[in-house]
């Protein structure tokens, strides 16, 4: 699903003392099938931006195109329900939105609500449960009896069961332990590839953006600050520092080595093992640049 923002601004509570412009003149394009990471500080406009993607908010000015749907200030979108069936948003701490008596009912709520017939709903629930890697035995259990990580997976399954084309993830790993974080991100990456989704990941984690995204957009104070491939954006250390963002740790370390040893070492997507190999050559003096 292709997305474009054209000079989009959004102001909360206009013409009141609380008026606040959260997004300012933002233009960007996200191509179909891409995995885009959106990064920015608290208050940079990330949450406001994603609420435009399924029409929870309409721009105060400018235009948002999501596939064949267009949002603008002048009029409400007629096909908004249809849009929402194609855009799945996993909000922060989605497990707080669980409400049904059983896991099955909770996952089935979305598709049923969008008018999917009963028989198909059953199949979709099974598929979604499989996608989030939960066992079938859980279907009859109350979602509230599950562990935190399982609850989150159930909530995500509910979004997947609607079979969205665009999946928006707002800090999906917050509050999970390191192992849980890794499993969750691997799961989304797999889904992205298997189902040919367009995925937007809102994150604070430079490491996740570097590991999973093919396109990075950095927001600052409601405006687009940087955009490009992760390896290009994240090596612009000075620009990132200006808005008080860190580069991923591996890139930071490589810069430190470069400064200390005066060698030509750069980030090119190497793993820790490969980096260790390069470092070993440098400190042993086998380095060809010396």
């Amino acid at each position: 699903m292709e997305i474009s923002f054209k000079q989009v601004s959004y102001t909360y509570q206009p013409n009141t003392p609380f008026e606040h412009r959260a997004i300012n003149d933002l233009s960007m394009d996200i191509s179909s099938g891409s995995f885009t990471a959106i990064i920015g500080h608290t208050g940079s406009g990330k949450s406001t931006l994603i609420q435009h993607l399924n029409g929870l908010l309409r721009p105060s000015s400018g235009k948002v195109n999501i596939g064949s749907y267009q949002l603008h200030a002048e009029a409400k979108l007629k096909g908004i329900k249809e849009l929402r069936s194609k855009v799945g948003i996993v909000f922060q701490y989605p497990e707080h939105q669980l409400f049904e008596e059983t896991v099955f009912k909770d996952i089935a709520f979305g598709p049923s609500n969008f008018g999917v017939d009963r028989e198909e709903v059953g199949g979709r629930v099974d598929q979604a449960l499989q996608a989030v890697q939960l066992p079938e035995e859980l279907l009859d259990r109350s979602p509230f009896e599950l562990s935190g990580g399982q609850m989150r997976r159930v909530a995500i399954a509910g979004v997947l069961a609607v079979q969205p084309e665009l999946l928006v993830l707002d800090e999906p790993t917050a509050g999970l332990d390191p192992k849980g974080q890794k499993e969750m991100m691997n799961m989304f990456h797999q889904l992205h590839k298997q189902k040919g989704l367009t995925t937007i990941l809102v994150t604070h984690s430079m490491e996740d953006a570097l590991a999973y995204a093919d396109h990075v957009i950095i927001l600052n104070k409601g405006e687009k600050y940087l955009e490009g491939k992760p390896e290009d954006v994240f090596t612009r250390q000075q620009d990132l520092q200006k808005v008080q963002l860190d580069v991923p740790e591996v890139i930071q370390f490589i810069t430190n080595v470069k400064d200390r040893f005066q060698v030509d070492l750069s980030y090119h997507g190497q793993t820790i093992k490969e980096l260790a190999e390069e470092l070993a050559a440098i400190v042993k003096g086998e380095n060809r640049y010396e």
Binding site: D177, K179, V250, F253
Partner: peptide
């Protein structure tokens, strides 16, 4: 189920 920091990982590889 726990991890170690980047620096520790790299030091071990070295």
């Amino acid at each position: 189920g726990l991890d170690i920091p980047f620096v520790t990982k790299l030091a071990a590889e070295l």
